[in-house]
């Protein structure tokens, strides 16, 4: 029997790792990867909650999260390709035209 808190804790740790990666890396690929990690952690939290109450709702929610992640990756990669075309690099520090 795995205590429910431990499951959530693992999800939290994974989420935090993804967060740190997001804040640190400048490369867009790594930022997208970190986002994936975070979403994965969140989805796992859903599944853990569903398992705790022995209801399939958690897994259904997990499916939706998966769908959203997939859609998001598709668009994100398309934008990445565009950025590569325009800036010749994928450094997010170049994306500062919203300055001031």
């Amino acid at each position: 029997m795995i205590p429910f808190e431990m499951q959530i804790l693992v999800a939290a740790i994974l989420f935090t790792i993804g967060l740190i990666g997001l804040l640190t890396r400048r490369n867009l690929i790594f930022m997208l990867m970190s986002v994936e990690i975070m979403m994965n952690a969140g989805a796992f939290a859903f599944v853990a909650a569903g398992a705790r109450w022995i209801q399939p709702d958690g897994q259904v929610m997990f499916l939706f999260v998966l769908t959203v992640a997939a859609a998001e990756v598709a668009i994100a990669l398309a934008l990445l390709i565009l950025m590569h075309k325009l800036f010749k690099s994928v450094d997010t520090n170049q994306l500062n035209s919203l300055k001031n």
């Binding site: 967060l19 997001l22 804040l23 640190t24 400048r26 930022m31 997010t92 520090n93 994306l95 500062n96 035209s97 919203l98 300055k99 001031n100």
Partner: peptide, 17 residues
């Protein structure tokens, strides 16, 4: 306050966190 609007994504993320 305008200094915070530096256009850097990671800065915005930090403030969100």
């Amino acid at each position: 306050i305008a200094i915070t609007l530096n256009g850097q994504i990671r800065w915005y993320l930090t403030s969100m966190i």
